[in-house]
Design a protein around this nucleic acid. Structure first.
Length: 105
DNA sequence: ATTTTGATTGTTTGT
DNA sequence: ACAAACAATCAAAAT
């Protein structure tokens, strides 16, 4: 039996965010996010007057309804987003390698 | 090196 | 602005 490695996906939206990172390099988005961005209109369009959580549910079902091929475009964006985060984390850790100029806020 | 955990992403509606 | 359900993620920390 495969180790589940505890998947905490049931908590959902933790408004009380405790970050230990100094400058908190926000991660990248997820494929689902991009997928939702596109489908949200479609789902809502097909479900007039759909409830709050319902939309999300239907959305998720549709998401899995796709194949890796369909997710590909979304995953692609997700990866691109990750790279975006990479820059953040890079700057988040790598302060000044040799010389750096940053805008004082 | 491996495992776990924690933090984060964006959307929906309604108040 | 935030509240859950939906899925991914994945990088960093702990072991």
């Amino acid at each position: 039996m495969p180790k589940d490695t505890k998947r905490s996906t049931a908590k959902t939206t933790r408004t009380g965010k405790k970050k230990k990172d100094p400058n908190a390099p926000k991660r990248g988005l997820s494929a689902y996010m991009f997928f939702a961005n596109e489908q949200r209109e479609n789902v809502r369009a097909e479900n007039p007057g759909i409830a709050f959580g319902q939309v999300g549910k239907v959305l998720g079902e549709r998401w899995k309804a796709l194949t890796t091929a369909q997710r590909k475009p979304y995953e692609d964006k997700a990866k691109a987003d990750k790279q975006r985060y990479e820059d953040e984390k890079l700057a988040y850790q790598g302060g000044g390698a040799d010389d750096e100029d940053e805008d004082d806020d």
